[in-house]
């Protein structure tokens, strides 16, 4: 349950701001209030939410929207895989995994990435469910506020709030980096990311993860090989 309170800090502020950004966007795209807030609960991943609203606004079909969110969700797979060793246990009921999986998104993952290894194994799943529940509330409340306040808040303040997201992500990665491989993966992502974005927007995150991650993995493997 401590996870609930811990999430009401910087990550909460950041998800609230992210939600507000999405809410304002959905408002401008002509979405209704209810469905906009509902998306923050059922998708709980802003890239998918933004893509879907954008598709609707452009008059795309439901199938087109479904295809778009399906692509954005692929990145959630490696995140869930890397948290499973911390979350799994003999006493953990199955429904908890399903809830935990739903709470997988970049913010929840970055929090868990640095927090869960420090906790005793028995507390990890409850802690993560607490973090996830709190973060989802923040995103949904932020979405509602952003929808209602669209166009009222000065743009510079909105910019500053949105700017907290990359700052928070990079610092969380630095705090979570334990081995040299983690640092190489981090730096590789920073370098490869912009190149992939310019070369293949839409697929850039997936490509960055695969390319940067593989470079870092080779590096780590090479070091292990030399040590033997």
């Amino acid at each position: 349950m401590q996870g609930l309170t811990i999430a009401f800090q910087i990550p909460a502020l950041i998800l609230g701001a992210t939600g507000a950004g999405f809410g304002a966007l959905a408002h401008d795209a002509g979405m209704k209030f209810g469905p906009t807030a509902f998306l923050s609960v059922v998708l709980y991943a802003t890239p998918a939410q933004v893509v879907l609203v954008d598709q609707f606004a452009r008059g795309a079909s439901l199938l087109g929207g479904a295809f778009a969110i399906c692509l954005t969700a692929i990145r959630l797979l490696p995140m869930m895989v890397t948290l499973m060793p911390y979350l799994r246990g003999p006493d953990v009921p199955r429904w908890q995994y399903v809830f935990a999986a739903h709470y997988i998104a970049i913010t929840g993952w970055t929090e868990a990435y640095r927090r869960l290894p420090l906790l005793p194994p028995r507390l990890r799943m409850p802690h993560f469910l607490g973090i996830g529940t709190a973060l989802m509330c923040c995103l949904t409340l932020g979405t509602m506020a952003g929808y209602e306040l669209a166009g009222v808040v000065p743009p510079l303040l909105t910019s500053a709030l949105l700017f907290m997201t990359p700052l928070y992500f990079i610092m969380s990665l630095i705090l979570g980096a334990k081995q040299a491989v983690d640092w190489v993966a981090l730096l590789a992502g920073l370098v490869v990311g912009p190149i992939c974005y310019l070369a293949a927007p839409g697929f850039d995150l997936l490509l960055t993860g695969l390319m940067g991650g593989t470079i870092a993995f080779w590096f780590g493997h090479g070091r292990e090989g030399r040590r033997l």
Binding site: W109, T110, L173, V181, D182, P194, L205, G213
Partner: peptide
Amino acid sequence: FAWVRSVATALVAGLVMRLVLF
């Protein structure tokens, strides 16, 4: 696991640069 963890890390780092640069 080492590879998947590297992929997830690089992916988030890539997102950081996208949010700052574009």
